[in-house]
């Protein structure tokens, strides 16, 4: 559906996107994940034809963007970051304007606006000026704007930024609903969002792709070391670290003491289950074990590993 090859963008001397390549299949919900300034927005802006790439190529359904920019724009619905809509227009007028610009005519304009109003929950604000509605509603109007012509591909730049938790859940539900039939590309720096809404995640950092895979695969693939949290009660907190470190394959990462309790964060070597050995070591010392829990590798850990280097 979408083919991107060695896409590069320089702003003067600054390299924002550095040779990104990926393919998006029909019906896929792809999340573009990365810290602030990683190049997510720039990538999406090039994809929608708003920015010219410095190098590289973009093709949507065999249309190359250099030759068929308008055709690609017809296939794409785009919600820019922070939904910059015309503040002086009424929501209804704005949607009617977008409908006309997207080639809808006559009674279809009203019909489509009514449909989208139901889908995005806009009925209450239809006749208010955009300047006066809340951020959450603005984002929903932006979503309705992007879906106006029922495009095959939706590109959403940080669709939930600045919303409250309830609104985030609502918008995610809408996106998941759309994702059943359409190809969706969304960018976010919120991991749980990518986890909740995307089939596939591409992590970019400093303009480069550092990971690309199905959400589940990605979680398993990088699952090397395991992290265990332990809380103990003991009279001799000073000896705890040495005792545990003596076990082969265990590394104590963090020790915190307060009121006779010791909190530990330890990592164990990959592909070995050391939990029994650790428990026995604790039992041998007659310490009271208050808490013992092994964390599975979350997307958050992967993200931090990949994006905190350099």
């Amino acid at each position: 559906m979408i083919h991107v090859a060695s896409l590069t963008k320089y702003y003067h001397d600054m390299c924002a996107v550095d040779g990104i390549s990926f393919d998006v299949a029909r019906g896929e919900v792809m999340g573009l994940l990365g810290p602030n300034g990683a190049g997510k927005t720039t990538t999406l802006r090039m994809l929608t034809g708003f920015l010219q790439p410095t190098a590289g190529s973009i093709a949507v359904k065999d249309y190359r963007i250099e030759e068929h920019a308008l055709k690609i724009r017809r296939l794409l619905g785009y919600l820019p970051e922070a939904a910059p809509l015309y503040a002086d227009m009424l929501v209804y007028d704005y949607l009617a304007y977008v409908a006309h610009m997207r080639g809808l005519q006559g009674v279809k304009v009203h019909q489509r606006i009514v449909e989208l109003s139901a889908l995005c929950g806009l009925a209450e604000v239809m006749h208010k000026p955009i300047a006066e509605i809340s951020k959450g509603y603005k984002q929903r109007v932006g979503l309705a704007h992007a879906m106006m012509s029922d495009p095959e591909i939706l590109v959403l730049d940080e669709p939930t930024s600045g919303l409250d938790p309830n609104q985030i859940v609502e918008i995610r539900e809408i996106i998941r609903e759309i994702g059943r039939q359409k190809t969706v590309i969304l960018s976010t720096h919120i991991l749980s969002e990518a986890e909740a809404t995307c089939d596939r995640i591409v992590i970019i950092h400093q303009g480069r792709i550092v990971a690309d895979g199905a959400t589940e695969d990605l979680k398993q693939k990088t699952g090397g070391e395991k992290t265990i949290h332990i809380t103990l009660e003991t009279d001799a907190p000073a000896t705890v670290q040495d005792t545990l470190q003596a076990i082969d394959g265990v590394r104590v990462m963090e020790v915190r003491e307060h009121a006779g309790q010791v909190d530990l964060k330890i990592t164990t070597a990959p592909d070995r289950d050391l939990r029994a050995r650790i428990y026995q070591a604790i039992k041998a010392q007659d310490w009271i074990l208050l808490e013992f829990c092994q964390q599975t590798q979350t997307l958050e850990n992967i993200f931090r590993q990949l994006t905190q280097e350099n």
Binding site: F50, L70, R73, R74, Y78, P80, P84, M101, R102
Partner: peptide, 8 residues
């Protein structure tokens, strides 16, 4: 940005 990503 919205104006120029519409098909115009």
């Amino acid at each position: 940005e919205i104006l120029l990503t519409l098909p115009v």
